[in-house]
Amino acid sequence: MKRFLGKKIFRLFIIAYFTVAMIEIVAEYFNDKTLVTLFKPILIPLLIGYYFYKSRKRSFLFIVALVFSWIANIFFINDTINYIILGSVFFLIYRVIIIYLVIRMVKMPSKLPLLIGAIPFLFIYATTCFLTFEDFGENIFLFIIHGIFIIFLGGYSLGSYIVYSSKTNLILFLSTMLFALSQFVFVLKIYSEYVYFLHALAMLQFVVAQYLLTKFMHLKEKPKSKYEFANTINEL
């Protein structure tokens, strides 16, 4: 009975998460600051609730990381430069924690897959830095630091999938790729007249990326079958 109720609750959380996400994406598209202010702060708490009820073995560090992401999103509601910088700092802390968790949970047998996997992410961020070097000014260094971490995480996730094409590694790679693309879309706003459409697109990518990352954590924390355990040993 308790397990049945738990399933009902986490399903309610994920339905609420995507419902709020849809409202938030529409609000970004129409630049409705009232709706953005009301609904954007609710997203991450709903995802934390989903993770809490979905996973039996919960990672305290992952919940802390999501809290930092939540604080970053609060700052990003106000689009003045000081708030954006503060949000970027909190999101950087979030990313560092996620990288630590991924390295601990996913083993890389050698550096070569990491280097190969980093190539597409390096291309994305090199292109972005080239396009925005003058527009960002001194803040380009914070963007570069973010880029270094996402290139590493992207290379690690894609490299892991190349070595061992599991469902969890695919989900991690897709999540990282969406995070990287959302950064690229964010920069495109500088050169596009469709600013609010790109706002909405970046938010869509962020919402799906966060969900996939949470899904990855849940799958990694599930007890492994004998077949999965054997593959994990071979992967090492």
Results as ranks from 00 to 15, higher is better:
Thr19Gln: 00
Thr19Arg: 00
Thr19Ala: 14
Val20Ile: 14
Val20Asn: 03
Val20Ala: 15
Ala21Asn: 05
Ala21Trp: 04
Met22Ile: 14
Met22Glu: 07
Ile23Glu: 11
Glu24Arg: 05
Glu24Val: 13
Glu24Phe: 13
Glu24Cys: 12
Ile25Arg: 06
Ile25Asp: 02
Val26Arg: 14
Val26Gly: 04
Val26Asn: 11
Val26Thr: 11
Ala27Leu: 06
Glu28Ile: 01
Glu28Cys: 09
Glu28Lys: 12
Glu28Arg: 11
Glu28Trp: 09
Tyr29Ser: 14
Tyr29Asn: 15
Phe30Trp: 10
Phe30Ala: 10
Phe30Thr: 14
Phe30Pro: 00
Asn31Ala: 12
Asn31Leu: 11
Asp32His: 06
Asp32Val: 05
Lys33His: 07
Thr34Ser: 10
Leu35Arg: 08
Leu35Cys: 08
Val36Thr: 12
Thr37Val: 04
Thr37Arg: 14
Thr37Gly: 14
Thr37Phe: 10
Leu38His: 05
Leu38Trp: 09
Phe39Trp: 10
Phe39Ser: 05
Lys40Ala: 09
Lys40His: 07
Pro41Ser: 09
Pro41Asn: 04
Pro41Trp: 07
Ile42Arg: 01
Leu43His: 00
Leu43Cys: 01
Ile44Lys: 01
Pro45Ile: 02
Leu46Ser: 04
Leu46Glu: 06
Leu47Ala: 03
Ile48Gly: 04
Gly49Ala: 02
Tyr50Pro: 03
Tyr51His: 10
Tyr51Arg: 06
Tyr51Thr: 06
Tyr51Lys: 05
Phe52Gly: 00
Phe52His: 10
Tyr53Ile: 00
Lys54Phe: 05
Lys54Ile: 01
Arg56Thr: 12
Arg56Gln: 12
Lys57Thr: 09
Lys57Asn: 14
Lys57Trp: 00
Arg58Cys: 00
Ser59Asn: 08
Ser59Phe: 01
Ser59Cys: 05
Phe60Gln: 14
Phe60His: 14
Leu61Trp: 13
Leu61Gly: 02
Leu61Asn: 07
Phe62Lys: 02
Ile63Cys: 06
Val64Thr: 14
Val64Gly: 01
Ala65Pro: 07
Ala65Glu: 02
Ala65Gln: 04
Ala65Ile: 02
Ala65Asp: 03
Ala65Arg: 02
Leu66Phe: 10
Leu66Ile: 06
Leu66Ser: 07
Leu66Val: 06
Val67Pro: 01
Phe68Ile: 06
Ser69Gln: 11
Ser69Trp: 03
Ser69Thr: 09
Ile71Asn: 03
Ile71Thr: 08
Ile71Cys: 06
Ala72Gln: 02
Ala72Gly: 15
Asn73Ile: 00
Asn73Phe: 01
Ile74Leu: 12
Ile74Gln: 06
Phe76Asp: 03
Phe76Cys: 03
Ile77Ala: 11
Ile77Ser: 07
Ile77Leu: 12
Asn78His: 12
Asp79His: 13
Asp79Cys: 01
Thr80Gln: 12
Ile81Val: 13
Ile81Met: 12
Asn82Glu: 13
Asn82Thr: 14
Asn82Lys: 11
Tyr83Met: 15
Tyr83Lys: 07
Ile84Asp: 03
Gly87Lys: 06
Ser88Asp: 13
Ser88Ala: 15
Ser88Glu: 05
Val89Pro: 03
Phe90Gly: 09
Phe91Cys: 10
Phe91Gly: 09
Leu92Phe: 15
Leu92His: 08
Ile93Lys: 06
Ile93Ser: 03
Tyr94Leu: 08
Tyr94Thr: 13
Arg95Lys: 12
Arg95Thr: 15
Val96Ala: 13
Val96Leu: 15
Val96Phe: 15
